[in-house]
Amino acid sequence: MTRRVILMILALFLPLTAHSLAPGEALSDPILESRARSLSLEIRCLVCQNQSIDDSDADLAKDLRLLVRERLVKGDSDADIKKMLTDRYGEFVLFRPTFSGHNIALWLAPFIALLLGLFAFLHIIRQSKNNGPTG
């Protein structure tokens, strides 16, 4: 009796923590399943706090996991699936921002920073060479 009451109480509360795949979700084809997993890691669970659909046990995440697998079985490419999801939910759904439009600065900035740094480094080395060993 108490057990049943407790189970009912348990069911009422919202979980704060995450889980991944539920039993029976995984595809039998190991190659497709591994594609599904790595794709799921790049898709944001829109109702969660910074979790991918692979990590979340929210209903939406589960639906999207199933949808991704369904599409993979039908033979869609990863790009097709991402396109379908962005059409539906916007770019927010992708953890890897697209390399386009207003995201170009996001992708290029780190490399520009690195190049500037290396350039400054080489400049200083060359300058010290010209100044001789003491100076």
């Binding site: 790049e42 944001r44 910074n50 770019e91 927010f92 953890f95 890897r96 921002p97 995201n103 996001l106």
Partner: peptide, 15 residues
């Protein structure tokens, strides 16, 4: 410009 997400795949690729 709307909302975008920057997650682990970005950092892995860039770092």
């Amino acid at each position: 410009f709307g909302k975008i997400s920057v997650g682990a795949p970005y950092y892995a690729a860039v770092l």
